[in-house]
Computed example of a mutant assay.
Amino acid sequence: MKKIWLLIVLICILSACSENERSNNNPYIPNYTVNLSADMNLPTYSNLKFPSNGVIVPNYGAKGVIIFNAGGTYKAYDAACPNQELSSCVAMTINGINSLCSCDKTEYSLYTGLGGKQYPLKEYKVEVVGSIIHVYN
């Protein structure tokens, strides 16, 4: 019995149960190629040096990309409302440690991407080297 549970957990970890896979299966947000770099030494991105701060970088992804300092790690999400048709809402806004959908006023945690609706925020990969944050998929 222990072997069966171990096998189930292993399969879950290596396949569809992973956070990145779950976050990016969204019928409302197309899979646009995202490849951007943000230099935290520039005034536009300097707030990202401090935990619990975020910025929206327009003209990437579906509605822009939200980059968030989650304290020791960085998160990046598409600024499109994840539970609405793409054409029906403007880009999400940052509201403290949450992002706010302009259509249904749902707030999503920028730490987890969750908002209590069917789909979480669409997440992108993040790599930080020195003061440069690289966001990509």
Rank of each mutant, 00 (worst) to 15 (best):
E85W: 15
S131R: 10
N59F: 13
K117N: 04
L7R: 09
L7F: 15
I67R: 07
N53S: 10
Y28P: 01
S131D: 10
A16G: 14
N98C: 02
V129Q: 13
N53M: 10
L42N: 13
D78N: 05
C12R: 11
V126T: 02
K105R: 11
G72K: 03
A62G: 07
D78K: 01
E107Y: 04
N41Q: 12
N31F: 13
K49L: 05
V135L: 14
T44F: 15
V55R: 08
R22N: 15
I66A: 04
E107A: 02
D78W: 01
N47D: 12
L110F: 03
E123C: 06
I66E: 05
K125T: 04
C101P: 00
K75N: 11
L86W: 15
T93D: 11
Q118D: 09
S37R: 14
P27W: 12
S99W: 00
L14N: 06
V90F: 14
G116H: 09
N59H: 11
V57Y: 11
K49R: 08
S99A: 13
A91M: 09
L121E: 00
G64D: 04
Q84P: 00
C17S: 12
G115Y: 06
C81R: 04
L36S: 06
E123T: 07
N35Q: 15
I29M: 04
